[in-house]
Amino acid sequence: MQINGVVIEDTFAEAFTMRAARIVITGKNAKWAREAALKLTGFATSVIGCKCEAGIERELAGTETPDGRPGLAVLFLTMDKESLPQRLIERLGQTVLTCPTTACFDGLTAAPDRLAVGKALRVFGDGFQGSKVVGGRRYWRVPVMEGEFLIDETFGMQKAVGGGNFLILGEDADAALGAAEAAVGAMDPIPGVVLPFPGGVVRSGSKVGSRRYKNMIATTNDAYSPTLRAITATALPEGVNSVLEIVLDGLDAPSIEAAMRAGIQAACRPGVRAISAGNYGGKLGPHHFHLRKIMGT
């Protein structure tokens, strides 16, 4: 299968079941909402080293937020449901609570699984906090030096999919980066999906474990590293000199598929030889995204 002369390899991306929350951050203006969101989602690229993965899903107009102010939706994921509230309490407490003018709302109000995140953070108020129930939702008002910080008492949690991916095999680094940027631009508008890595792009895709170091749980994906082509079992086709990976997390498999479809289509451009995907033989993750099936539909 080829798209615009780019080979779509007959392989699949292997992804995992995760737990996700959607955090809505509003601010006096979009700038301050973004400041908080960027801190919240900073150092949240991979559960391997960050214990969570997060990204900005999309901007929200005032008509979409509980307080009518501009905001951002952030998707926040962990590998298990026990760690999600703890990570949220840590990060919201240090990034959104501290950020001027912001308020923090649940973006999965229909989810039956509830995390008592705001309820935990309220104690920063040292007993001076108070709550308000509006439309059946309880909000906590935490007094701070600026005025008050407002946060939903609970946040919804749902199953999600983490680790969707595809690889862009370019003739050179510029071609791979240009294709990756185009892919990210095409995937940005897709709802329910985030790209947790810097600019949505990964240059250091990994394999499970290590050939040499027993304590390493992930090391460089030598099969796709161009500089190792001559000394390892390479997976690189002729003419490929740089590979970039797009990793995506989403609230469900259809969202991942839609984003992969848009991203791969955009990445198939001159200078790209092939599109591939990372997997572990299908034995680790329950979600398999077959590239040709996705691009054929």
């Binding site: 509980p66 307080d67 509006v134």
Partner: peptide
């Protein structure tokens, strides 16, 4: 004298 954030939620509701 300030802008109570909960009033913005309440009034939009």
């Amino acid at each position: 004298t300030y802008q109570p954030p909960h009033l913005q939620v309440l009034f939009h509701y």
